[in-house]
Amino acid sequence: MTTPPLIPSRRRGTWGKSTAGVVLTAVMLFPVYWMINVSFTRDQDMRKSPPGLFPLHGTLTGYRTVLDEQLPYLGTSLVVALGTVVLTVALSAPAGYALAQLRPRGGGVLGFVLLAAQMIPGIIMAMGFYAVYLSLGLLQSVPGLIVADSTLAVPFAVLIFTAFMSGIPGELLQAATMDGAGTWRTFRSIVLPMSRNAVVTVSLFAFLWSWSDFVFAGTLVNGGAHQPITLGIYHYIGNNNQEWNAIMATAVVASLPAAVILVLAQRYIAAGVSAGAVKD
């Protein structure tokens, strides 16, 4: 009895495995396909039985509705998401530098608190924010929503920055100190430029989470003048709207940032998921 050699047997099965992989991926992504399919379906075909598997008589009505009704929501989402990115990076990059390189007394406790903070359920934070914002008059305000959304990303961001910046060799920073650069100068001119990848990872996640946020938006700015796209979709569904092509077209548009990021910056995402292992 001989054991078959490992390598050839692996290579033999490779096409079969690729096919199986494609099938599995297709099954997994079917809901995404379905969303796109429905977004192109005509109203009169929407309740057809069985439903059409392909948008044969495709229509752009849904997308026209998005252009007519949802642009302000998309604009708000963009502003809120970008604001969240700026706030998150501004807060967590210096913190990451301090925790990774300066290692102050009590830094460990702070790191621990940040990790624990990620465990707090979003709706609890939302209720707390609601109570606070009500007394401060910050309900229905875009800056208020930006601050609330940043709580989704700041603990994760500090974690990523700390991990990344501890990889910067200490001698390099000492050299800068010897050249007379203060801590701030060292941070600005050496640490930050070297941490570009961490900045990108953190920005991507902060953007995605803020763009996708529904809990804070629904609690803090619902019904206000500036509402994000997640509420746009939610109101569509809530109004017992039967124009599912418009709903799904909005959903497709709302998914575009995720798609763009996946295509252009996938390695940052995969790295962020494993490194932070923070969000489910």
Partner: peptide, 8 residues
Amino acid sequence: VPWLLPLI
């Protein structure tokens, strides 16, 4: 993809 999509 499913993980990156907004939950809504």
